[in-house]
Design a protein around this nucleic acid. Structure first.
Lengths: 256, 256
DNA sequence: ACGGATAAACGTGCACAAACGGGCATTCAA
DNA sequence: TTGAATGCCCGTTTGTGCACGTTTATCCGT
């Protein structure tokens, strides 16, 4: 195989992970013509970024399996919770708020105060379940084809349903944040749906843990000037936040 | 079988446990191409993690014990599971099956074989989550206003979304079964939605534990001649089943 | 029905190879 | 020059199979 740059190699590994659900370190090493050490480093980085699950001998895709999902929720749980607590303060009473699928937004939905009366829409079954626990929330479920990777409805039906509502505020999930502040996603349909939601919402907020800055996903979701508020962690490199702030986006730092 | 990594092997063992209720160490050893010692070690670890019950010669799925999963289903877990196992045999491959909200139908969705390729629609976030675990299922989420009591979407939007599909088979939940075999529900919108679904489906199945025969709910859903298959428990009074059978409805008894 | 014989299954300790992680040197581009 | 990416070395960890003594289920003769 032709020599690839680091990012290219990692994207290719990710592709194979999605295709086969697993990769073997030794195989990848000979495939890319690099040492196993390098592959191990790739896999380690990708695992800390939450892109795969590291196992002895290689790595596994983060599948729909609840063990890995719980794992994904569990790893950065406290940090996500801290983000979530800050995020809910953005939600005014009596508004229509939309939660995009994703573990970070699930944390936000869980952190919603019990005594807050809002209409809450989501395309994620998991988030819908969490919202059901909030007695004063009117829950609106956005239907469509369920995307296993994204964890929520996407596609034509979802967009159709989404077209019926206009959220005052939406929390968009993102798989990666580019150096210029642009958001990206791993699925074509997922990205398209996020775009549509963002375009319909009066205010667009993005909550992202620090790992998101290390990841670049293939499909564009929104440039820095297309969302209004970024919640992230205090220890993110300020250089990465500069373009976002320059685009007129409010930046909220939360966490320990 | 291709060489699997430790975690993959254990996941596969778990899958077989769920499917067959038991696994034999020797069989697994030759299947994976590893020694029985390795399998024993796997089984021991899984038992320690509370994933299976270790017995002489292999392991059993957690039966009499209680899992976290069963908490969600509720009190009549084992009986619902027995119903569910019988119910999934009604689902042909490559069909479009609809699961109405409800704990009994959740059990059916969970009992769906992993290797069954179907399109599965539901208005319940909880059931959607369960279906997401089935790798070969295309999951369609029916959106709308979430009804807390019913546990699924109802209302105009849900009916709109439902009007887009025509299930080959649907499992309708019921809150009560009248002496004449008529189904009833506790919510007006919920009942209306169930009616709509039943009317659109080629075949309508109802899975109900014996308690349902003791309950009468205010809103009518379907008379005995409006559904085609009733799954219930063997110890239900035959007198109660008579009118259902007379209406031309197939009756399947399942359980211990 | 009972108790002992027998073979299978078990667990433990051990050995070995593969995989791992950290440290260090080298390369190369900014 | 500096920093990132990579390969190599080496001590450590992990997964696995084998050997050996123990436990358990099943069968069979009384």
């Amino acid at each position: 195989m032709t020599d690839l740059m680091v990012q290219e190699r990692q994207v290719e590994i990710l592709r194979r992970l999605r295709q086969d659900g697993r990769v073997v370190a030794a195989t990848l090493a000979s495939l890319f013509g690099v040492s196993e050490d390098t592959i191990r480093r790739d896999l380690r980085d990708m695992a800390t970024a939450g892109l795969c699950e590291r196992v002895y001998g290689g790595a596994l895709a983060i599948g729909p399996g609840r063990t890995t999902l719980k794992h994904r929720i569990g790893v950065a749980a406290e940090r996500k919770k801290a983000l979530a607590v800050a995020a809910v303060s953005l939600v005014p009473a009596q508004c229509l708020v939309y939660f995009d699928a994703g573990s970070t937004n699930l944390a936000i939905a869980e952190a919603l105060p019990e005594d807050l009366a809002v209409a809450a829409a989501t395309n994620s079954p998991a988030i819908a379940l969490a919202l059901q626990e909030k007695p004063l929330a009117e829950v609106i479920l956005i239907g469509g084809s369920l995307d296993r990777v994204a964890g929520g409805s996407v596609g034509a039906r979802a967009i159709e349903a989404m077209a019926q509502i206009r959220p005052d505020l939406c929390f968009i999930g993102t798989c990666g944040i580019d150096p210029d502040g642009a958001l990206s996603a791993f699925g074509l349909e997922d990205a398209a749906f996020k775009q549509f939601v963002a375009a319909r919402s009066r205010k667009v907020a993005v909550a992202a843990t620090r790992e998101k800055f290390e990841v670049s996903a293939p499909y564009a979701v929104a440039a820095a000037d297309q969302y209004h508020c970024l919640l992230t962690e205090p220890d993110v490199d300020p250089v990465r936040l500069r373009p976002v702030r320059d685009a007129g986006c409010e930046i909220i730092l939360a966490g320990m």
